[in-house]
């Protein structure tokens, strides 16, 4: 199924300076009973975001109206824990297009990419300065350029390159996914199976 195309994005961002944010925090297990991909955004970070009675917790960043934007900037080792893609659906469903951190758990990173969310790995220093800038000015912005593989801290002007392989980059730029690709090489897969038997 086509994913949304991604080229460049300039946006304010939401800071979440907590390390090791795991998938159980991103979307608690009790929300995994759905059989479709829709509706997970409302429960993103549910236990940090809402009181038991469902009212928003005032001190959680997503409930603070001064922060906005389609970029989430998180502490290191984001997305550790389970392989549940629901975490990526929750992030995408909430409206985030980019997650910035100094380190991502492997499975989360792949899941995010498969759902049109770009994980951007930055240096510890770059990350710290983003937190610093948004502390001083909640309207601080970043710019992400997928073509050039760069991220810019718009407050300081500092630019950093990030890694993404050209296959995945092309998928995002053109809005196609792995299954489209795999289906297109089915002949190779069948040939592989035949060869193995011999």
């Amino acid at each position: 199924m086509p994913i949304e195309k991604f080229t460049t994005l300039e946006s304010t961002f939401v800071p979440l300076p907590i390390e090791n944010v795991d998938t159980d925090q991103i979307i608690p297990a009790r929300f995994l009973k759905a059989t479709t991909k829709e509706g997970f955004g409302n429960n993103l970070f549910c236990d940090w975001r809402y009181e038991k009675d469902g009212s928003p917790k005032k001190d959680f960043v997503l409930n603070n109206p001064i922060y906005s934007g389609s970029v989430l900037v998180a502490g290191k080792n984001f997305g550790s824990g389970s392989s549940r893609e629901h975490a990526a659906w929750a992030i995408a469903g909430y409206g985030f297009k980019v997650v910035v951190s100094s380190f991502f758990a492997d499975i989360f990173r792949g899941n995010a990419l498969n759902n049109g969310v770009l994980p951007v790995v930055v240096s510890e220093g770059f990350l710290a300065s983003l937190f610093d800038c948004v502390n001083k000015d909640p309207k601080a912005k970043v710019k992400v350029d997928l073509e050039a593989k760069t991220i810019t801290n718009m407050t300081t002007g500092v630019v950093e390159s990030f890694e993404i392989n050209s296959y995945k980059r092309n998928c995002l730029l053109n809005g196609y996914d792995d299954i489209d690709f795999l289906l297109s090489i089915k002949g190779d897969i069948e040939a592989f199976e035949k060869n193995r038997q011999n």
Binding site: N111, N114, I179
Partner: peptide, 11 residues
């Protein structure tokens, strides 16, 4: 992830 489950089922 589930996207990959779909890949394995499909290919």
């Amino acid at each position: 992830g589930t996207s990959e489950v779909e890949m394995v089922l499909s290919t």
